[in-house]
Write a protein that binds this DNA or RNA. Structure first.
Lengths: 249, 249
DNA sequence: TAGTGGTCTAGACCACCGT
DNA sequence: CGGTGGTCTAGACCACTAA
């Protein structure tokens, strides 16, 4: 992601035309004009609609494709990125086996309940303090091995009305796909913070390790269009046979 | 980095013109025709030199700029990216304080010696097994706090002839800047693998923590132009007041 | 003021896809 | 085959920088 999220937006200033087009397209995506998985109009159509040249549309679309918001397919069209296809739920997963790749991801729901938002969560999600959160926990298996990660997910209840254990399990815990299909919430980016911590007794028991063992703690804030935070996550990862992979440039 | 490094290069196939230009520019960078920090010729000059249009050069340069190999500055020109300026050595540092940003990085050399390459290191660096490595260790302070990280760096001795503790300290342990200035090795990308581990007695002592405490282990392979590996690193990070930050998209 | 990269346009042709 | 995105070109103008 090139765009900067949280923090002070560095004053819009005057934007070039292609960025205005990009913003327009983003707003149309937010509005639901085009849904995840659908094709958006062709470049020529968009150019006419916005009264700009095809090249200008192309540059706007190229940036959105670079941010994984749109997907371009030669000969077919440009599509709204979707979490609802095989392997899509792997794109935000940086935990991989030490040997080989993460191919299959399975999840088992531990519990799901409604809780009051603490000040930190409310602040990160932009909620009123004391608002309601949905808090769910789950265990992850990778390529049939596990449990590798214990995850705790916090969601604003207002945006996920009707979410309960039955719904979550119906989507086989493929969360971002579920957010998208059942609640119209499209996750497009996230920020993670990692620390090494000692396992507490409960977590250790659920991951099948000893209390005090070193675990990788992964905290995530996930964002939808426009950098709006929509999900908080905290995972504890057993890195005995897995690691967190990251590419730098 | 969009380009895929290690592993099976997926067959070059026929490349569009702008990728051939990109490859040409990369080769000229490798050859040292333009050194880090210098300006490369203007787009118009390059277009004439390669007998293509300015737009084609522009697209090649844009990709290289996106990979942080080149830096474009409106009104001034296009420059070869360099680690030799303030804050440059922070661009590969994902460890940041829990509050605020990493602004100042200080390093203290612990030791530096020549060792035989083990099979794993030789394999990763593409050396003959039994080749010679330079192995150095150092401690990192961030914004005056620390030590936060204990790092062990392994380099192929053949590419870093003459590197000793005196040289390293003369460059104040700004390693990538030193590689570039003293040895002509330009690091352009890296891959990191993270695990949580228990501190051994030595490491704990150097980081001022207790043996057995959880530490974040960061392993890195750094690459120069063309995806050639040139450095191995293993860091142990005390995440009591710091974390590893990562943006997903 | 001259030179640089940044934007925008217009049009041609290519490569790929589905019918 | 027609329609899509991908490439390449050529030229005009803008925004920024340095002298």
């Amino acid at each position: 992601m090139k765009t900067s999220f949280a923090g002070l937006a560095p004053a819009p200033a005057f934007q070039p035309l292609y960025r205005q087009i990009k913003q327009l397209i983003t707003e149309l995506l937010e509005s639901g004009e085009w849904r995840p998985g659908e094709a958006i109009p062709s470049e020529i159509d968009l150019a006419q609609r916005f009264s700009v040249s095809q090249g200008t549309v192309r540059k706007a679309v190229a940036e959105l494709a670079g941010e994984n918001v749109l997907v371009r397919r030669q000969g077919r069209g440009t599509f709204v990125a979707s979490h609802s296809h095989a392997r899509a739920h792997l794109s935000f997963l940086h935990v991989t086996p030490d040997r080989g790749r993460a191919e299959r991801l399975e999840a088992r729901l531990v519990d799901l309940k409604r809780v009051r938002a603490d000040a930190t969560s409310a602040g990160l999600l932009g909620l009123d303090p004391g608002g309601t959160l949905i808090r769910l926990r789950r265990l992850l298996w990778i390529n049939g091995r596990g449990p590798v990660v214990l995850e705790e997910v916090r969601l604003p209840a207002s945006a996920f009305r009707g979410l309960d254990a039955t719904v979550a399990e119906a989507h086989r815990c493929m969360l971002y796909s579920m957010y998208e299909a059942a609640f119209g919430v499209k996750v497009v980016a996230a920020e993670e913070r990692l620390k090494a911590v000692a396992a507490d007794a409960d977590t250790a028991h659920m991951l099948g390790v000893c209390a005090g063992d070193a675990l990788l703690r992964i905290e995530r804030v996930a964002y939808t269009y426009g950098g709006k935070p929509v999900e908080l996550r905290r995972g504890f990862c057993n890195t005995r046979f897995h690691h967190y992979a990251n590419a730098l440039s």
